[in-house]
Design a protein around this nucleic acid. Structure first.
Lengths: 235, 235
DNA sequence: GTCGGATATTAGGATACCCTAAGCCAGCAG
DNA sequence: CTGCTGGCTTAGGGTATCCTAATATCCGAC
């Protein structure tokens, strides 16, 4: 009989913690408290305190001096916030004229305030979108999320054809620059060159037949699906 | 040199207090702390504490044992919240299919979370509406609000032609019932009868040629403009 | 003109969250 | 295998908001 069925509603802080823990632990297993602190711009002791509360609430598992991981319950709560955020970003962009680089902050505040009902209405009005403006997959209402096999542009082999799928930053300046370069989700590209020692990657943009040189920092943010759309791609 | 130009951003609680103080003091001069407590569903001492902070912040004037009034600054902050709330209600109703009786709670939460920019985008998308779904006037972006001369249906003279302008409640059950009766803003009506001793008012609905009997409690919520629309009305 | 009850305020405490400063632990350097 | 350093946690405060219980004030009834 569902032990903690009626949890108290989560506070804004808790929702934010869960979201960053989700992101930090999505690759490796544990999220370090100092990384959580850095992401939320808090002092590490504040995180230790919250970590205790979260693990008492059954939302995370804490291994002292190692880090934290989400429980199933915590993961659900995190995915719910991610769905909210991404639906909001998509709605604000498509319906209210926000730019993809300015929409993050607004969604960040709204995601704590709106009802699930509103989110579903927005999603419905948009035809249940599967990706947000940055190309990130939107969890379904049932909180299932697509786990795509994406490679960072910084690691793609020279000669490979790719489709740009995700731009993994919310920084407005970087987003604006990348958009100017035509590097938005859906862009078809071929890696034509990479300089050694973490040097820049050069890509050919299909459609515009233009070349772009992308430094390593930005190339790491560009998540691509191999075999982009045409050319020799077959697989 | 604008003394307190850069006030700290107001908290949600403060925003809520200012809004109810605005409503409570809009008629008479002072809002009583017990009335504020009742409206916000708080214990009176909590209000006393907040009242002290608000008056230190220059948002209200407090006369001990009498009540509070908004300062010019507090009034501006209250009107800003009222604009936000009413724009949100209008947007949610017109763009996302909310009913006029269900929209209040959603707007109540969102009004604390969204940016002014979003409010103006929503207002723009709606063509800068002047009234919300309940007929209440929406303050302009410059925070000017229409002060209409409205009479309560419960006090209108028998025989008078009226236009229903505002429905002064947010209670979903009452709103739903009134909508079923065709009593929504814009309805044209004529008072045909009133029973004594705070008895019900009977109105004739133009257009539907139907009669409605409205008890005193509800009739007090229906704010009307005299000389409704047609018939002998000329003024 | 004083008493009593309603209303308001002060006193004292709880919670959730944040911080800085001080102490603890794990694992690598030697 | 010992000691140091950096990351983590505990200790101790601070703010904002709420509460209950106790006290103060106002005002109409008599």
């Amino acid at each position: 009989m569902h032990a903690l069925a009626h949890e108290a509603p989560l506070t804004r802080s808790v929702e934010d913690y869960l979201k960053v823990i989700y992101h930090l632990s999505s690759q490796g297993g544990f999220a370090a408290t100092s990384d959580i602190a850095a992401m939320l711009d808090l002092a590490p002791p504040s995180v230790s305190g919250m970590v205790k509360r979260l693990s008492e609430a059954g939302l995370i598992e804490h291994v002292p001096y190692r880090g934290v991981q989400l429980t199933a319950q915590g993961r659900r709560a995190a995915l719910r916030m991610i769905r909210r955020h991404r639906v909001l970003e998509t709605y604000l962009t498509q319906q209210l004229g926000y730019d993809w680089d300015g929409v993050h902050a607004e969604a960040e505040r709204m995601e704590h305030a709106v009802s699930d009902d509103l989110i579903e209405r927005m999603a419905g009005a948009l035809g249940d979108p599967r990706y947000d403006p940055h190309g990130e997959p939107i969890p379904t209402a049932a909180l299932e999320i697509e786990e795509a096999e994406l490679v960072r542009l910084s690691e793609a082999a020279v000669g490979q054809a790719l489709e740009l799928r995700e731009v993994a930053t919310q920084d407005p300046a970087r987003l604006r620059y990348l958009a100017e370069q035509g590097l938005t989700p859906g862009a078809q590209l071929v890696v034509t060159d990479r300089q050694p020692f973490n040097g820049p990657t050069t890509v050919q943009l299909r459609g515009s037949s233009a070349a772009r040189v992308v430094g390593q920092e930005l190339a790491r943010l560009l998540l691509c699906r191999p075999g982009g759309g045409d050319g020799d791609a077959r697989a």
